[in-house]
Design a binder for these strands. Structure first.
Length: 886
RNA sequence: GGGCAGUUAGCUCAGUUGGAAGAGCAUUUCCCUUACAAGGAAGAGGUCGCAGGUUCAAGUCCUGCACUGCCCACCA
């Protein structure tokens, strides 16, 4: 078998991607004998193409799915895409704009045709990218939030909520995007700090020469003021409550009212009340029965205002009003001021509050249940620090504005009877799957469907039940078997927008949470810690990384830094490191496979023949245990690092190196025994790593096993207690000697390849076990420290032309061919003495501390005592050597 | 204003129940040794954000503060 010297990711990835899809490796069928493990993918927006955030998100899910599959679960990972409401409509509208047409030119029907056409042409690009990453999704179950099944779920949910009285229509103050021309829910508004001004405006009192000053960031809204409010406890203004003001520029007479919401300490302690365009003001208006005058229209232009301001944009009106106030002498002063401004999360246009008739969902009861679910640990956040923000948000939730004045989306399943022309019969709107046959009030036969569509998040909230066909059959087998799902993997930016709502709907419609665990991962940032964004130009395209370093490298790099809940900084370097790791695995495997060629078969049984065998088995077992634990708690980053460390620094650096002699042995039995363990640990490591790096591990696994099962269907290594715990300590002793000799050779500029003889003087305090260990394993020392011959003895004088290494229990003299550079050796030894003296100082301080000796555990004291003794012995030996040199 | 994270080597980050500060990258020296130079061996580099406290012992536990980032809020 030929393996390239460098791992070629491209061919391997192509091969396995095709294999998994063609063989339906990840397609799941109901199997009552197996426990299900289900994940429903956060559906990517149809407009989206794969970015690093997606890559991280799906890689983590894939790792979990592959792991659980190996652990024997019947795994299902459902793929899908989201129609993406406003965002998607915006994209298509932009294309139309290039052709010089608006959606209104086309009309609803034609426009929707365009939308669907667009969706069908571009909508599955992202799914292909998921395949490229190796995602073990069940490709037979691709869902779309606007397909038949999901649409039925949406209608069903709406009707149920409507009939329960949770959904109602009303004219209320809503967030309005003047560009998208639609209402938005509270969380679809993003706040940003912006430099602005605070205008102090004089409002003159009627029948008096004096005035009252209000401070505002939005002078143009004064045109819609219907009162001025002060705090009822504010001594400065108490006496003015009830008095009348003349509103400048408009000359409307407005009252001064009092309301506890007014903060005495802010600005002048007086606020102008514009009930039609501000939440606080609206509340004040309700409490004080104030008139509501709408002055901003749906396109963000002024209405119901004096002619000179009519049809001005808000910004223009602000300028004009400011200028006019100043000219008329109503402006007291303008201060610089920073405040946060709400913007549309889809187009960043400044959002206005305005009065509008919309559909709302009363969420009080549902959010209460969602809170209980978190408190009762029916859903658990990883990391749990997100539990509190989740609960707080739900506790303070206002009714959800669910209607949108766009066309792309689920049209609200409400029908109005149009036969009751003079409204005498008082026909009420009817919620229905299809157009009703007859009006239950007037027996009319003609209906008109509500023109609005639902917030895209309404259908998203139904995703975990919609994909299993809840809308068609709420008792479907799939739903029974796969719901509730096992874990939701997502970023924290949509905890409120999506996660909390899925929990609410899951509890409402299924009487059960949609998932047990919620795994929140961080955001991928650039190497300076900045968020990746197109405008900053710091976006790293995962496809480029795959092209350059391979998918496994991309996966490992992201997994390795994906600590739950924490943002991560990635740079080229992280992918390079991961790529190098892949190459290391490739070459270690290549080495073993090369040597396997002359062997018919490795043994069935794992029989350790020497110390290193016991040691690597023990280290491997503890790695399995640790990796399993951290995988299960979603600490995938720790698992990745743990495997990396084990494989590279233990398996490759020590075990393969130490095994080379046996591998090269002419005795076929010796060779087979060593390779048996090498293969056993290699295979196990590949399994541990397989969820993270599925391509390279699959490829090597297949070459190793020929006709056995593919690695994703193999059984994840089980944890077991080690029988060779003492091998750890023994190996440490040998390693310590090897490293010390290597260091010395390096310091003395002796090429590491030069073989030299060594004389081990066994010191009196060395215990027998240790002596035995070193003697039994002198081969390791010879081999790895490049020592030609070792002699052991006691009370040996330092030979001429040698240099000294003091290890625990040994004085090691290395024979030099030439003369020892006495000065160099001396200064080296003196340095070592200084280090040993510092050690003595540290330990003596501790041992002289009465409280330490009295209170610290025995083991600890013994440890310190040993350190002290070792340092003393070391100094003694070095001093003797120094004398000898003279 | 409230809340949540974070602060450890030049950079990115680990650090278990408190018991001699760790890795990768970068850097220095040596090595193309028949798995791997995308590699190997070794070195240098740290007042663990600051100030107190608990303890025989604190990067680790407690309190306060500073800085950074994020989330929430009725910032007129």
């Amino acid at each position: 078998m030929d393996m390239d010297k460098v791992y070629n990711s491209k061919e391997v990835e192509k091969k396995w991607n095709r294999y998994w899809v063609e063989n339906k490796t990840f397609s799941a069928k109901i199997d009552k004998n197996k426990k299900p493990f289900t994940i429903v993918i956060p559906p990517a927006n149809v407009t989206g193409s794969l970015h690093m955030g997606h890559a991280l998100n799906v890689i983590l899910q894939d790792i979990i799915i592959r792991l659980k599959k190996m652990q024997g679960y019947n795994t299902l990972w459902v793929p899908g895409i989201d129609h993406g409401g406003i965002a998607t409509q915006n994209v298509v509208e932009k294309f139309l704009k290039k052709e010089g047409i608006t959606r209104h030119d086309l009309g609803r029907e034609k426009f929707l045709e365009k939308m669907w056409q667009w969706r069908n042409e571009t909508g599955s690009a992202i799914l292909d990218q998921l395949k490229m990453i190796g995602c073990g999704l069940d490709w037979c179950r691709v869902s779309f939030t606007m397909d038949e099944s999901c649409s039925k779920s949406v209608k069903k949910a709406f009707i149920q909520l409507f009939e329960k009285g949770f959904i109602y229509k009303g004219k209320r103050l809503v967030n309005w995007c003047p560009r998208c021309l639609t209402a938005l829910s509270d969380i679809e508004v993003e706040y940003e700090n912006e430099k602005s001004n605070l205008w102090h405006i004089k409002y003159p009192l009627i029948d008096s020469g004096s005035y009252i000053i209000v401070a505002t960031t939005r002078p143009e809204t004064m045109l819609g003021d219907t009162a001025v409010a002060v705090n009822p406890d504010d001594k400065r203004y108490m006496h003015l409550v009830g008095k009348t003001l003349k509103l400048p520029l408009v000359n409307r007479e407005i009252k001064i009212v009092s309301d506890y919401i007014v903060d005495k300490t802010f600005g002048t302690g007086v606020i102008k009340v514009t009930p039609a365009h501000d939440i606080t003001d609206n509340e004040i208006a309700k409490r004080n029965n104030l008139e509501i005058i709408e002055i901003i229209g749906i396109n963000g232009k002024m209405i119901n205002v004096p002619a000179k301001y009519l049809e001005l944009s808000v910004e223009e009106a602000r300028k004009e009003v400011g200028k006019d106030l100043e000219e008329a002498g109503f402006l007291a002063k303008i201060e610089d001021y920073v405040h946060s401004v709400g913007k549309c999360y889809r187009c960043s246009t400044k959002v206005e509050y305005l009065m509008s008739e919309q559909w709302f969902l009363n969420v009080r009861e549902m959010s209460k249940k969602a809170i209980d679910a978190a408190n009762d640990a029916k859903t658990v956040f990883y990391p749990q620090s997100w539990k509190r923000p989740y609960i707080l948000w739900l506790e303070n939730l206002r009714d959800w504005c669910i209607s949108r004045q766009i066309w792309w989306g689920h049209r609200i399943p409400i029908y109005y009877c149009v036969d009751d022309k003079d409204s005498r019969k008082n026909c009420k709107p009817i919620a229905s799957f299809d157009k009703p046959k007859e009006c239950q009030y007037c027996k009319g036969k003609n209906f008109m469907q509500d023109g609005d569509v639902l917030d895209t998040w309404f259908s998203s909230a139904l995703w975990p039940i919609g994909v299993f066909g809840w809308g068609e059959n709420e008792n479907s087998q799939d739903l029974k078997y796969f719901y509730p799902t096992s874990v939701l993997v997502t970023g924290h930016e949509i905890i409120y927008l999506w996660v909390a709502r899925m929990v609410q709907f899951g509890l409402e419609f299924m009487k059960n949470v949609p998932y047990k665990d919620i795994f929140i991962h961080g955001i991928v940032r650039d190497k300076y810690g900045k968020k990746m964004s197109k405008s900053l130009g710091n976006v790293v395209d995962p496809c480029d990384i795959i092209e350059k370093y391979g998918t496994d490298a991309l996966r490992f790099a992201l997994a390795q830094s994906a600590a739950p809940g924490r943002d991560m900084q990635v740079s080229e370097e992280s992918f390079l490191v991961a790529r190098n790791f892949a190459n290391k695995i490739w070459n270690a495997s290549r080495f073993i496979l090369m040597n396997l060629e002359n062997i018919d078969k490795v043994d069935e049984d794992i029989k350790p023949a020497e110390l290193a065998d016991e040691w690597i088995i023990t280290e491997f077992e503890s790695t399995i245990a640790k990796v399993k634990t951290v995988y299960d708690s979603y600490n995938i980053d720790v698992a990745a690092r743990e495997i990396y460390d084990f494989f590279w620094t233990k398996y490759c650096d020590w075990y393969i190196e130490v095994s080379k002699i046996r591998i090269a042995s002419s005795d076929i039995n010796v060779k087979r025994q060593a390779l048996t363990i090498l293969v056993y640990v290699l295979k196990g490591t590949l399994q541990l790593l397989s969820p993270v790096m599925p391509f390279i591990t699959s490829e090597i696994w297949q070459i190793l096993n020929k006709d056995e099962k593919i690695i994703v269907e193999s059984v994840f290594p089980k944890t077991k207690a080690s029988q060779f715990l003492e091998s750890l300590e023994k190996m440490k002793t040998v390693q310590d000697i090897i490293v010390k000799i290597r260091t010395l050779k390096n310091e003395m500029n002796i090429s590491s390849a030069v073989q030299i003889g060594a004389l081990f003087n066994i010191l009196d305090e060395l215990d027998e076990n240790k002596e035995k260990t070193v003697k039994e394993n002198e081969r390791y020392i010879k081999q790895l420290a490049k020592i030609a011959s070792i002699q052991f003895g006691k009370n040996i004088e330092r030979p001429k032309n040698s240099i000294l290494v003091v290890a625990d229990g040994f004085e090691i003299f290395l024979h030099l061919k030439g003369l020892v550079d006495i000065e160099k050796e001396k200064s080296r030894l003196l340095k070592e003495i200084v280090i040993a003296e510092q050690e003595i100082e540290r330990t003596v301080v501790k041992l002289n501390n009465e409280n330490f000796v009295k209170k610290a555990p025995k083991v600890e004291i013994e440890k310190i005592q040993t350190r002290l003794n070792n340092a003393n012995v070391k100094i003694e030996k070095i001093n003797k050597s120094l004398k000898f040199l003279e």
